[in-house]
Amino acid sequence: MSKRVGSSRSIAGADTIIRVTLPRFTPEQDPGPNFVALVDNMGISDAGQGSLIDDLPHGTTCVAIRYNAGVMLAGDKRATSGHQISHRTMEKVFPADQFSGIAIAGAAGPALEMVRLFQLQIEHYEKVEGKSLSLDGKANQLSQMIRQNLSQAMLGLAVLPIFAGFDLRLDTGRLFQFDVTGGRYEEASFAATGSGSIHATTVIKMGYEDQLDESAAIELLANAIFEAADEDSATGGPDLIRDVYPIIAKITSDGYEAISDESIASVFSAIIDDRRSKASGGE
């Protein structure tokens, strides 16, 4: 039997490539400023059902705190597949738009896709409507995306983000934590997610004060990630050999800004010096 070439059957996956035309809708079908609905409408919605998958890369520890100028997000860079370290430089903290950010833990693939869709959803809304969504509106959108992912979460592909932003209307930084069903919980001081979050939370709890300044906030977050990495095998600490450090970003009334690698490196080297001197009896 010879292989048939040029059969009439379409190539697998070819239907996931959209026809990039100018999408027009009747008023009843119009998705408005909702990008996710637009994607569904165009028939390029995601993933079918699968079986339990547990060897996919997973994201690990992320922490967020409020401080005197807004909020800060921090995350390690390790991704693990089972007991393997699959990535050492995976970013888990992203800007969502100019005044908000998102940090993710959970299955890496769906998490990154959720971040991408969420970023687009906010930008799309802003462009179509001519004004940005409120911070509550953005948090609500994210909670709906997590809820839609529930069936995937039951298969082991849970995504658990922290959403943080500067609310220009209330002139304050705010942060939100989520559960796998899309439950949205606003936190007054700090939030953590991922396998190392228990340890990170303890460190934050011990050191947290209202209205911390920027350097104290960075130090506290770095300590939290450091201790989480020390106790949890799926969380990566500072990697001195490869010069890879966890990410810390701040969101203030000036917008989202990642803290420079150099200043993060110096904070971690101070932590390491401190632990070393304690281990050797204070000398």
């Binding site: 390029i44 799309h124 179509v128």
Partner: peptide, 10 residues
């Protein structure tokens, strides 16, 4: 806007 966002997304 829809054309551009969809194209950039896909």
């Amino acid at each position: 806007v829809r054309h551009a966002d969809l194209k950039g997304y896909s």
